[in-house]
Amino acid sequence: MLTKLSPTLKTFMTLGYGFLYLPILTLIIFSFNSSRQVTVWQGFSTKWYRSLLQDEVLIKSAWVSLQVATFSASAAVVFGTLAAVVLVRLGRFKGRSFFGILTTAPLVMPEVITGLALLLLFVGLEQIIGWPKGRGILTITIAHITLCMTYVTILVRGRLSDMDRSLEEAALDLGARPLKVFMAITLPLISPALISGWLLAFALSLDDLVIASFVAGPGSSTLPMVIFSSIRFGISPQINALATIIITGVAIGVMVAGWLIHRKKY
């Protein structure tokens, strides 16, 4: 356990984790502050949570974000898994290495460039073929699928490579069709990667400000876009309350996912 670590290393780790968590802790503590001043404590109150529930713009944008995140995470899991299966199982085909680069490139591309590029594509497409009509939830979803499927591909690829292939081979030897083998053997075995991929994609989509700002249209502001414009006006305890809700939700989600993934391993 920790006793193996030298005191210096322990100090470093304590400071490191302190650095990661203290700012988040200040957000949570001051969401319960009764004063409008975010940095001076004046007593416990939950009024900022109540005012959050009455903020219609915020609630509407949260709804937009949840819709976009659900759709794009689900589509990203399908596309990302297909891409991973192609890369790991189909062996060599023409253009494989190019495909490999294409599937990891969105991961390292600066968001400003991806957002700008996708907007220019949507504008161009609308001019030429008349689709997509304007910009909104659809264009944000398409952009997020592109971004998120990369992460899913990496997770599923790792899982597929670790997997024991003999089960698939046995099923094939017993006369099962490839699709049947994929559905009955491969999918259940890679399901932990699918679950964590879906959750990661969902979180990424929910979190994205830059790409969404480029490809969103009027009336389709996502939650980060609304938060961003209110932060620009200065700090407000209402945002702290929202942060607390998001952080709590994510913490529960990560713990459940972590438990699901690791419960068999150790």
Partner: peptide, 22 residues
Amino acid sequence: LMMVILPFWTSFLLRVYAWIGI
């Protein structure tokens, strides 16, 4: 490890916002 990953999952924007208050 989970404690390292956890902040990565929470909103990027809100983590930057926390530093404004600090």
